Computed example of a mutant assay.
Amino acid sequence: MKIAFILPALANKGPIVVARDIINVLVKEGHVIDVFFFDEKNEIALDASSSRKITMKETIPFDEYDIVHSHGLRPDYYIWKHRRHIRTKCCTTMHNYIHEDLKFQYNQLVATLFGFLWTRFLKKQDHVFVLSNHMKQYYTRWISADKIEVIYNGRSFPDIGSALRQDELAKLEKLKKEFIVLGVIAQLTKRKGIDQAIKILPQLPGYCLLVVGDGKEKEQLERLAEQYKVEDRCIFWGYHKNGSLFMSLIDIYLMLSRSEGFPLSLIEAASQGIPTVCSGIPIFKEVFTQQEVTFFELENEQSLFQAITSINYLRDTYSQKISQFYQNRLTAEIMGNNYLLAYKRLAAVN
């Protein structure tokens, strides 16, 4: 097949990483993939047949492709804007819950305005991929259910070696000898729920919290750690291009989110067999069971305390279970082949 991907930029962000992994799987299987993007930001490498920057006014040769697959608000707007020139089947992947994500990231006004516009753009798509059955139900408010298909995210992780400096590595290994390391690798926003871990840390004297990532909530989280007198056990590492390098230093991974699409860091933790605690939001309870992870109730400190301490006693068991689950359900190859089957069905529809 010949497929065009339209992306906002080649940025090291979750939705773009997912698109990259789909592309790499399809190229390995002999398909031709051309990538078009709007912003000159080369943070990730693609195995695509070609890639080039375009403008919103520019019309790509749509008729050359079997499928055009967009990811994100601007690419979806681009399809909506040029739809009258497009006979090729178009699809998009929704990586988030539009209104909730915009509300957490900006405010209610932005969520209402851009949520309305984005859902309008989606109606011009022939097919909409979502990341869970719960997300499918959410989008049926605006789109017919027969146009929506669920494909779980997946990832594969090549061995990238160790890019941590020796002094960084020594600091973290020293920490690991003194404490059980709770870890979070994420953009620091309120939606990620990291404040919940800080608030529970006084009740967990043998534990420390390692936070890798940056964002507008970082200063607030640092102040919260001081307020709860746990700043000596909260390590805010900041942004690192290869956050995955920290996974092997984490004893228990924390997914504390108040809202999520399908977080890639959770898949990576699973791939490395790291015991994981998840908030009890629908996406996590749909994908996992209590055999693979432990759950806690959002904003409930006692529930989070119990989830952390209980998984700590059975770390080896949970490590084995979540690693096996990853191999069976969450690899990039599984995801990529699911998209390929969907593309073939879509292209065959008259």
Rank of each mutant, 00 (worst) to 15 (best):
T140W: 00
K89Q: 11
V150I: 11
L340H: 06
R83K: 15
R165D: 12
R120E: 06
K123G: 02
G215Q: 07
F121I: 04
A270N: 05
F36S: 02
S50T: 04
E268L: 13
A111F: 03
E297K: 08
I148Q: 00
F262R: 02
T92W: 00
S310A: 15
D126N: 14
L245Q: 09
Q187F: 09
I235N: 05
T276A: 08
V230Y: 02
A225K: 05
L113I: 15
L172Y: 07
P158F: 03
I198M: 07
Y138D: 00
E149V: 12
Y77A: 12
P263A: 12
L245Y: 09
T112R: 14
V277R: 01
G161H: 09
V349D: 09
E299S: 08
G154Q: 01
Y78I: 03
I334F: 05
N350G: 14
R52C: 01
I235Y: 12
I16R: 00
P263W: 05
V25D: 01
R155T: 15
T309D: 06
Q291D: 14
Q327W: 06
I267R: 04
F116A: 09
Y313T: 15
M1W: 04
Q290T: 15
N107K: 04
C90G: 00
D316S: 15
N300W: 01
D76H: 04
H99R: 11
A4E: 02
K171Y: 12
R329A: 10
I311S: 06
K229D: 09
L109N: 09
N328Y: 07
K89P: 08
G14S: 10
I194P: 06
H69D: 03
F121H: 03
H85R: 10
A342W: 05
N312P: 06
K216A: 10
S244G: 14
I54N: 07
G154C: 05
Y152M: 07
R155Q: 08
P275Q: 07
H99F: 14
S156N: 10
R165V: 04
Q320C: 12
F114S: 02
F284L: 15
K344S: 12
A197W: 03
E231H: 13
